[in-house]
Design a protein around this nucleic acid. Structure first.
Lengths: 171, 171
DNA sequence: GGTCTCCGTGTGATTTTATAACATTTCACG
DNA sequence: CGTGAAATGTTATAAAATCACACGGAGACC
């Protein structure tokens, strides 16, 4: 329960490795998710809500089985499909993302906007920050156009060292 | 063994979805890999060579267990670590890449150059083409600089429909 | 040539991640 | 209410990856 109210001007950060008011962050995001589901005719059921809440609360990438353990503690079903189905729903509707390199999931930080997420993954502390990218605008897009490949989705994940770990880093 | 010699001007393709002389492609690549290992003091052992040959021969992304089956047929060890260790070696030395979205591996198409690979993955036929990208030059790089994140590696994988499948595609 | 060590390999077992299949419940809608 | 589609709970299994340990061959060193 670290409160740390001295947030270091979070608005100056693109997203991610910044301090912020976490309780508000979680409840705002849950509210936004609910509103989004209502307006799109989606069912924001208790399991789905709980999984999103877990992801928001932890504020990092969690494996499906970690989520499953937390679900169990809250009295939900404890078999893998329970977690995977909720995660599938959240990912399909842009409320969460899968980090392919980690086989883990993380809450989306700006679910309402349609976006092409990109992630920065710290190899030391495993923190994950979401940001935007437009891979289709660069060399990848050129290659796709040249070959006739139609891009529908992109996975962009950068592995490296986050600002908090940069001093611990060897190099 | 479909031959289809009417290749659609392959030289105009950046890389990947093009026709080509496959036998030469494989042997050239194996030779280049061997030369690379010799010059770097790496041991290009029979298992490692065979795994790379398999990847080059198939010319698509293969799961570790598929590779393992093919290794077994060639008289190599048949337990998972045999395949994973060889793949780890090939990936670590830039001779192959892992496609994170598929949990599969593919031979590198231009191993000698240091590069930032990007992949185009057809969701219909599962063909994978390797190309170049420079994600750190765009929005992702800006975000990394702004937050102080040091990028060491990037995973860029575009999912979509390849030129050969574009007519089968629904949309 | 001996022999020591490192690295790679072979193997059995286990862990982690994900899905299949099917019964039961919930909910929107008529 | 009744009905059908969607969501959930549960058992079982598949797929992907790693651990741990024994064996053996290639070089380093004497």
């Amino acid at each position: 329960m670290t409160s740390s109210s001295n947030s270091n001007d979070p608005s100056s950060y693109p997203l991610g490795f910044a301090q912020h008011d976490h309780a508000a962050c979680v409840s705002d995001a849950l509210g936004a998710a609910e509103a989004h589901c209502v307006s799109d005719g989606l069912r924001f059921t208790p399991v789905r809500r709980k999984v999103l809440e877990i992801l928001l609360q932890e504020h990092r990438a969690l494996g499906a089985y970690t989520i499953l353990d937390l679900l169990r503690e809250s009295g939900f079903g404890s078999q893998p499909p329970v977690a995977y189905r909720a995660l599938d729903f959240l990912v399909a509707n842009g409320l969460a993302h899968k980090i392919e390199r980690m086989n883990a999931f993380i809450a989306c930080v700006h679910p309402s906007q349609s976006h092409t997420p990109a992630f920065m993954i710290c190899r030391l502390c495993e923190a994950v920050a979401e940001t935007q990218s437009s891979p289709a605008k660069g060399a990848l897009g050129d290659a796709a156009r040249a070959t006739g490949f139609r891009i529908e989705r992109t996975v962009v994940e950068a592995e490296g060292v986050c600002p908090a770990c940069i001093d611990k880093a060897d190099t």
